[in-house]
Design a protein around this nucleic acid. Structure first.
Lengths: 349, 349
DNA sequence: TTGAAAGCGTTACCAG
DNA sequence: CTGGTAACGCTTTCAA
């Protein structure tokens, strides 16, 4: 496998490699005639510049690392598409890594990607440990954190008002007359979980509904944990007429547990989720949830990242807050979904 | 951002860069004492080798490209996890690309990845055009094709017997007494579609059920197309008592269309899918489908790829056939799902 | 408008 | 066991 190099092109076109480089990068002057000759040589030889070599000299790899906890949660593929598309438009490639919500994995990936000299990171942190992010900042490597914030670090981030939207979700249930509202949280140490939990409690407080700690459980954002926590709640004998889960995967798990227990959704227990993954509108009953613009958030993160990469290193950390909204469907009874307005993330402008 | 290089380490440890390289790669002899000193320097300086430079000299990037049509179809994230995990175990990084089933995108990605000098590709082709694959083969770049085969090219591949399993699926419906069985195919030009279609027809033929071309429609493997094709079928006035869709996303779309039409699944129309994405077991009614070991297929593809990368360039193209199976659930009435044995892909050994 | 040559950070070969 | 020194393929001054 003899690779064609810039040298071969130069020889073929009977010019110096500097000239080939110039026409390739459209840098510096080169006569129309020579340029033609070089292009012909490039095509004749089917030459592809070696980006590795290029990166080594320029110091930029035109690659960004995307670090996510779990690509099998449909929320993240939507984010990933947004990141990928926005990156591609700008000539960047994305390396996607799954941490399985494991901080060790996360560290390992970041190390590997740093060694590959990615130009920046888009991140959904897997745990409360800020050290990885801090390491990046210290090394002056651009990072944008998405969906979760990092306590103790000043980073660019793309977020939604988790507390507010959890508040809305809970209020919706309260508005439907529910008082025994269980809450299944995500991992306690994530800001996302804390904020959504805070929203839940604030809603209860504002509505004068007494808070019952026995109705709160902690999951890990995955389907089985929602299922298991819901079973526990049902088995506990506590009265529960509604459940709010910190994300859709857990909400769906909870719904399933309720049905397996012989109860009906929403007649016996209402369910509300968070994220609005595609699945939420497809299951029966369809799931009331908070719709996050996942695709958009990914794309936005890349834009912010590229600005940093483009030089705007200094300055304060910036935070973009994205809009979310409550999508009412069947899983909590009451009103019906506004048709045709739901936001799937992928494919949205 | 002054990056620490091997030179700095050498200076700090008072040895030559050759020595540092040796301890780093555990190549050649180096005294215990020197080694210690070098390691201390590496840690003191927090040195990270530049993989770009390393790749440039060694000629291998320890990166593989994963090219998939659509990461928002849950089948592919499962494959991706398999690929990623297997790659990581072997010290490889994965660059994941979505082609949106667009051959142009596919070409663009392959070009970009080749320029980045990935060591090999794992591929699910988006179309019938073999030229991209042929280009790779010609350039002696290892490729493993997954889930679909490429006509006119001799490539390593990881497949299942699509025809056989489509046959089983159809036979299952026939066995339940159905005769008016519609079929919603994937894109006509993909081998996967052709084979599944062939299985459908063979089952009809073997059972002596007459084939009705008006009952066959073509979708694109995505939810909306399954929904639309099913609506058309219903609107056509043709008698339909069962539908077999070439993948789960379309089957779920079809199911929804049936329900929106005011009919019940499975009482009025039975539905069978193909893939066994997680979603298939979560919806109501749960979906009878052919279970493919997505995660395993991804991992297997990487193993095959690494063997090629490891030198086994010559020889015939190899094909690994993975086992699939029919998972009977609620969407077609009749028997119930065997509990606890379903294969989700991710998480499986 | 073009060419020569000095790196970029590593590895690998060859002396010592 | 260790050090020097060509590559690797490309960009980027600096001269011409």
């Amino acid at each position: 496998m003899k690779t064609v190099t810039i040298k071969d092109v130069a020889r073929h076109a009977k010019v110096s490699i500097s000239t080939v480089s110039r026409v390739l990068n459209e840098s510096g002057y080169v006569s129309e005639q020579t340029s033609q000759r070089v292009w012909r040589a490039i095509e004749a030889l089917n030459y592809k510049p070696n980006q590795l070599a290029r990166s080594l000299t320029t110091g930029r790899s035109r690659t960004i690392g995307l670090v996510l906890p779990d690509i099998t949660n449909p929320f993240f593929p939507a984010v990933a598409r947004g990141v990928e598309d926005a990156a591609n438009v700008n000539g960047y490639t994305v390396i996607l890594c799954n941490t399985d919500a494991d901080p060790e994995q996360e560290k390992a990936y970041v190390t590997a990607l740093r060694e590959k000299r990615v130009d920046g990171f888009v991140f959904t942190v897997s745990g409360p440990d800020a050290s990885t992010i801090l390491g990046l900042i210290e090394a002056d490597i651009p990072v944008v954190v998405i969906d979760r914030c990092v306590e103790g670090a000043s980073v660019d981030s793309v977020l939604i008002y988790n507390e507010q939207w959890a508040y809305e979700a809970t209020m919706h249930l309260i508005g439907l007359g529910h008082r025994a509202i269980a809450y299944i949280n995500g991992p306690d140490d994530l800001t996302t979980s804390k904020e959504r939990y805070a929203g839940y409690r604030k809603a209860l407080a504002d509505a004068g509904v007494s808070f019952n700690p026995a109705l709160v459980r902690t999951g890990d954002f995955r389907y089985p944990s929602g299922h298991a926590r819901m079973r526990e709640l049902l088995a506990s004998g506590q009265e529960v007429t509604a459940v709010f889960a910190a994300n859709d995967m857990m909400a769906i798990g909870a719904m399933r547990a309720i049905q397996e227990w012989g109860l009906r959704v929403p007649e016996d227990i209402a369910v509300v989720g968070f994220d609005d993954i595609l699945l939420a509108s497809l299951i029966k009953p369809s799931l009331t949830t908070i719709s996050q613009p996942a695709y958009h958030m990914g794309a936005l993160a890349v834009e912010m990242l590229l600005e940093r990469i483009g030089g705007a290193q200094g300055g304060e950390a910036r935070t973009k807050i994205c809009h979310a909204r409550l999508v009412v469907r069947e899983s909590c009874g009451g009103r019906r979904e506004e048709f045709g307005t739901r936001n799937r993330g992928v494919g949205q402008p």
